[in-house]
Every structure is written in C-alpha cells, then in structure tokens.
Amino acid sequence: MSKMTLIVPIAADTKEGQEMPYLFGLDGNGLMYCVKAVTGLDLSVFDAVYFTILKKHSIQYRLAEMMRIQFERFGIADKAYVYELEQPTASQPETLYRTIVDNGITGAVLFKDADSYFTADVLCENTIYTYPLDSMQMVNPQNKSYVVIDDMYYVTNIIEKKIVSRFFCAGGYGFEDVCEFVQEYEKLSALPQLHLSHIVFSLLLQQAHFRPHMVKGYQDWGTRDDFQRNY
C-alpha cells in the first residue's frame, strides 16, 4: 500500500463558558470517543494519524496530554499527532484543508468523522464508507449524506440531508490522492455551508470514480442531544 494518512477533524467551536465538547469525553472503558472512533480500523496501514482540534480547547482542557495517553494505549504514539488550529474554521472541509496544507500531507488520505464508529478494511482509493439506513435501529436521518450506487457498484451521486438512497455515508471518505481534495476545496471554498459531500459531488461531475465500501458495526454518536439520549 502506498503512503496513507488518517485525519480526524474535531474542531467545531463552542461558546465561551460551555462545557468540554462531548467527543473528548471518556466511555466506560476510559476511551475518548474521538479516539474510539478510529479503533475499528487497522491503524497499522497508516503512516500518520492526525486529530485536528482547536488550540483554545486544547489549552482549556489539556486535550493534547489526554490524547497522547490514548495514543500510547493503542500503540500509535509514534505516528499520531494532535494538530491545533489557532482559529475556528468555517467548515469541516476547511479544517481538513488546513491540516493537509499546514502539515504537508501527500498521498492517499482517509477522512474519518469523530462522532461515529465502524469496522472496515482501509482502501487506498476514492471511497465512501457507507451503511444501509434500514439496518439502523435508531438514527437521525436528517444529519446524513446519502449515496446513490449504480449496478456497476460505483457512486453516481451524493446529496446532503436528502434521502435519495438506502445508503448513507458512515463518516469515512477516502481519496487516492489528497491533491484532488485540495484542488477541489480551493475551487469551492467560497460556498456557504460547504460539506465533504459537495466536494465529492463536484468530482463526480468531472468523471472521477468513487466506490462505496460497506462498513460493519456502525455506531452513531451524532449530536450532543443524540449522544445524551443514546449513550
């Protein structure tokens, strides 16, 4: 497998005086949820793993120290990094873009959401990690991006928050070459409420190929309210 990097963005801003973002909290086994989110993957295939957070959160809650303890627990302390953003970004794609550019990341990448868990093989290609909506017992269908798959098993469409298929993105996007993401982000960065699904859709319009990859054991921690209700 060629060089591959895993990036987990956890840089959503919070208002002054609010409690620590829940994804930095611990489960019953002492695992930070944002770190637990990647433990269903074979972490040995990645050359580097980046968790991108806001510097103000890191300082206020001593997150870098906490996360490094977690990295040691999973044996990835030699290749896992906490990247601290000085200022909040306008979107998740901007957070990813800043991480890539500021750290000189090249090669294949996997973007993994911090608010979900699944098990899956890691593919070094353009991939959307998917899961069928009808397999979920509890889910908020309004906060997903939905994926249309053709008979040849290619992704033909991806739409934010509109149920056009039984398959939704489980929180993983793979790019065979991170340059594709960077170039597309730079073209679309001025759009309001930019999502990763918009970048993938734009690439699909340019005849780029994305394969769906069905995951197993999917868990959705969702929003703070969903998290409190389900966990």
Rank of each mutant, 00 (worst) to 15 (best):
Met152Ile: 01
Gly107Ile: 05
Leu85Ala: 06
Arg98Ala: 09
His209Arg: 14
Leu41Asp: 02
Ile100Gly: 08
Tyr117Ala: 00
Gly17Leu: 12
Phe181Tyr: 12
Val45Thr: 14
Thr52Tyr: 00
Leu85Val: 06
Asn103Met: 03
Lys56Ser: 12
Asp177Glu: 12
Leu63Phe: 08
Ala108Gln: 01
Asp225Thr: 14
Val147Pro: 06
Ser44Ile: 01
Gln228Trp: 02
Lys3Met: 11
Val148Trp: 05
Asp47Glu: 13
Arg211Tyr: 12
Gln207Arg: 14
Ile158His: 09
Lys216Ala: 11
Ile59Gly: 06
Leu26Ser: 09
Leu96Ala: 13
Phe46Thr: 12
Ser91Gln: 08
Tyr131Lys: 09
Arg166Gln: 14
Ala170Thr: 03
Gly171Glu: 00
Lys56Val: 10
Arg73Pro: 01
Thr39Gly: 00
Leu191Pro: 03
Thr119Arg: 15
Ala64Arg: 15
Met4Ser: 15
Asn126Leu: 07
Ile10Arg: 05
Gln193Cys: 10
Leu188Tyr: 09
Gln18Cys: 06
Tyr83Phe: 14
Val101Glu: 12
Glu86Asn: 13
Leu203Pro: 12
Tyr185Gly: 11
Gln92Asn: 10
Ile199Asp: 04
Trp221Gln: 02
Thr156Leu: 04
Pro141Val: 07
Asp113Thr: 10
Asn230Met: 12
Ala48Leu: 01
Leu6Arg: 06
Asp177Ala: 06
Asn230Pro: 00
Leu85Arg: 12
Val215Trp: 00
Asp47Lys: 11
Tyr81Gln: 09
Tyr146Met: 07
Gly174Ser: 05
Ser58Val: 02
Ile100Phe: 05
Phe167Tyr: 15
Glu65Thr: 10
Cys179Gly: 05
Gly40Thr: 01
Val200Ala: 09
Gln18Phe: 02
Ser91Glu: 04
Ile10Asp: 07
Met214Leu: 14
Val8Cys: 08
Val164Met: 01
Thr39Ala: 08
Arg68Asp: 07
Ile105Glu: 10
Glu180Ser: 15
Ile76Thr: 13
Ile149Ala: 10
Asp78Met: 07
Pro212Trp: 07
Ser116Gln: 03
Ile105Phe: 11
Met66Gln: 15
Lys162Asp: 08
Asp42Trp: 00
Glu176Lys: 14
Tyr61Asp: 04
Phe168Leu: 06
Ile199Met: 06
Gln142Phe: 12
Tyr50Ile: 02
Asp102Leu: 13
Pro212Lys: 10
Leu196Glu: 15
Tyr83Cys: 06
Leu6Glu: 01
